[in-house]
Design a binder for these strands. Structure first.
Length: 311
DNA sequence: CGCCTTTGACCTGCGC
DNA sequence: GCGCAGGTCAAAGGCG
């Protein structure tokens, strides 16, 4: 998806749409998938696959025990040049071509060394990165009803920037995963239409398990095939990494995955979404055109069967 | 001391 | 080409 389209989506459907739902008294998180086609589908499936998606998991009292999952065997799925999964072990060096930033870093290292000498003279100003076109990682946005901006998702983040957002009184914060060689980023901004909601956009894939919640603790559930540790941000639902349960409850983050919207069908499902009662029982994967949805292959392995049936 | 946030400057893409 | 807005860098400072 082109950047322009992403921005348009965010502006058109982003926080306002979900704030609308949230204000109806049903706190949840919506997921936007800003990546492309099946890649986006995979990303979201994996997003779900990291954890049990049963509704109970999204209830606050259960949350602290659910946000971790065990290391899983790797199935590297390629979509063209895009690779959605990363090696199961952080130590693995099998970095594929789609980890664009990491690969680009490797490729440009040698060049950089040469250029470094040449550019030393003109480096009066800040040295900036290469002039190759920037490649976007798959992005997923969540809208969460929360009092706090920084939602705990099991990973450690370092803030590297903050910008004022046009037409919004709330700034947008930029975070980067603190783990070395992990290029996952996230943006956090508060919805100006509903200050009680936080829009969190994840970009990239973690190349490591959560440092906070060991995945081995996934209650003995055998890992499903086709899921890798490093997939699609390895998302764990927002929770407090270090806080007590009361603090956690204070965050009021009864998150619920209600939908995923592929760019091509966004408008359609956006509409249907607003007319969908009983969201807890009506989980759909709105990725028409996705082979995943049709044959349920990978999806079956990841999403609990009852979720697949309930429509 | 290490890690983190803050913040102004800079870079980049896009529309006009 | 110019201006705007989003995104990133990196120095400075705070905190435990």
């Amino acid at each position: 998806m082109k950047k322009k389209e992403v921005i348009k989506m965010e502006e058109t459907f982003g926080s306002s749409l979900f704030a609308e739902h949230i204000s109806d008294g049903f706190p949840f998180s919506g997921i936007f998938d800003f990546s492309e086609g099946e890649k986006s589908s995979l990303g979201f499936m994996e997003l779900l696959g990291i954890q049990d998606c049963s509704p109970s998991l999204f209830d606050l009292p259960q949350a602290p025990s659910m946000a971790s999952s065990a290391p899983r065997p790797v199935t590297t799925v390629k979509e063209g040049s895009e690779v959605l999964n990363q090696p199961a072990t952080p130590n693995s060096s099998t970095i594929s071509s789609a980890s664009s930033e990491a690969v680009n870093d490797e490729q440009t290292k040698a060049v950089d060394q040469e250029e470094e000498q040449q550019e030393k003279t003109k480096k009066q100003l800040k040295p900036k990165k290469t002039n190759q076109k920037r490649q976007r990682e798959p992005r997923f946005a969540f809208v969460t009803k929360s009092e706090v901006d920084q939602l705990e998702d099991g990973y450690r983040w370092r803030k590297y920037g903050q910008k004022a957002v046009k037409n919004s009184p709330f700034p947008r914060s930029y975070y980067r995963c603190t783990t070395a060689s992990c290029n996952v980023k996230k943006r956090v901004e508060r919805s100006f239409t509903d200050p009680g909601t936080v829009v969190t956009t994840y970009e990239g894939q973690h190349t490591h398990p959560s440092p906070v919640m060991p995945r081995q603790s996934l209650a003995g559930a055998p890992p499903g095939p086709g899921i890798s540790v490093g997939c699609a941000t390895n998302f764990a639902m927002p929770m407090s990494r270090t806080s007590t349960l009361s603090q956690y409850q204070q965050q009021r983050q009864q998150s619920f995955i209600m939908n995923t919207l592929s760019p091509s069908t966004y408008g359609t499902h956006h509409h249907g979404l607003t007319n969908t009662p009983g969201l807890r029982r009506d989980i759909r994967f709105c990725t028409p055109g996705s082979a995943l949805l049709r044959d349920n292959g990978l999806l079956q392995d990841i999403v609990p069967s009852h979720m697949l049936k309930e429509e």
